[in-house]
């Protein structure tokens, strides 16, 4: 392949066909029609891509809509981003807001804004400091959640280790934010090593389960170790 790939820049308002590009930059408002394959995409204003996207880096600083699948090595969302199809990327960082109508698959997923996934979220590592909403299964080797802002709702969690912490805040702020329901609500959790705070769950199964303050759990089934904070509610705990 000696053919040199061109770059695409939309400044102002415009539309362009899909295809193979080196760098794609949308600085005003732009729409790309068709599938696109490129080295990098950066969207600074508002962008919409109607086909599949394959790129090594994707950076969204304004707002972006991907109407089909997205595949990239790194995806960085600082503004808002909506994806209608499956998203896969080695490093996915969400500092703004991201909404996926299908599933996300990654190696490392870090969220400090909000992330909503209607399907499954699968990654080796998930670190979330903002609300994380997953409709289906949230599966990872390590999941580290710091509860902040609104409630996080997850269908199922399956993992190696899971830690859920409440964010440390002053007494006053704590009371103020309680109104927003700063907690994790989940149906079932299955994992090897679990530590939970401020979590509502129906069923928890694990090897080593530690229930911290603020939890409200239906049933715990554990293999090796179980501990419960006095400020937690657990209806039943059985060793299996």
């Amino acid at each position: 392949m000696t053919e040199e790939k061109r770059s695409l820049t939309i400044s102002g308002s415009g539309r362009a066909p899909g295809g193979c590009y080196e760098d794609v930059k949308i600085s005003g408002s732009g729409k790309i029609i068709g599938d696109i394959m490129c080295g990098s995409i950066s969207i600074n204003g508002s962008g919409r891509i109607s086909g599949d996207v394959k790129g090594s880096t994707i950076a969204v600083s304004g707002s972006a809509v991907f109407e089909k699948r997205v595949i990239a090595e790194s995806i960085n969302v600082n503004g808002t981003c909506r994806a209608e199809g499956n998203v896969s990327g080695e490093r996915i960082q969400v500092n703004g807001r991201m909404h996926t109508a299908a599933s996300i698959r990654g190696e490392s997923v870090r969220v400090s804004g909000t992330l909503k996934v209607e399907g499954d979220l699968e990654s080796e590592e998930i670190v979330a400091e903002g609300p994380l909403n997953v409709g289906g299964l949230c599966s990872a080797e390590h999941i580290d959640m710091t509860l902040a802002g609104f409630a996080s709702r997850i269908g199922e969690i399956g993992c190696g280790t899971l830690t859920v912490h409440r964010r440390l805040s002053s007494e006053l702020f704590g009371k103020l934010f309680k109104v927003f329901g700063k907690k994790l609500i989940v149906d079932t959790i299955e994992g090897d090593d679990l530590y939970l705070e401020d979590t509502e769950a129906k069923v928890i199964r694990g090897n080593r389960v530690r229930i911290g303050p603020g939890c409200s759990i239906g049933r715990v089934a554990y293999k090796n170790e179980y501990a419960k904070d006095e400020k937690a509610e657990v209806q039943s705990a059985v060793k299996e």
Binding site: S139, G158, C159, G160, G206
Partner: peptide
């Protein structure tokens, strides 16, 4: 096997 392994293999 553990839960972690099972989910890892599924992933």
């Amino acid at each position: 096997i553990s839960y972690g392994q099972l989910y890892r293999w599924k992933r």
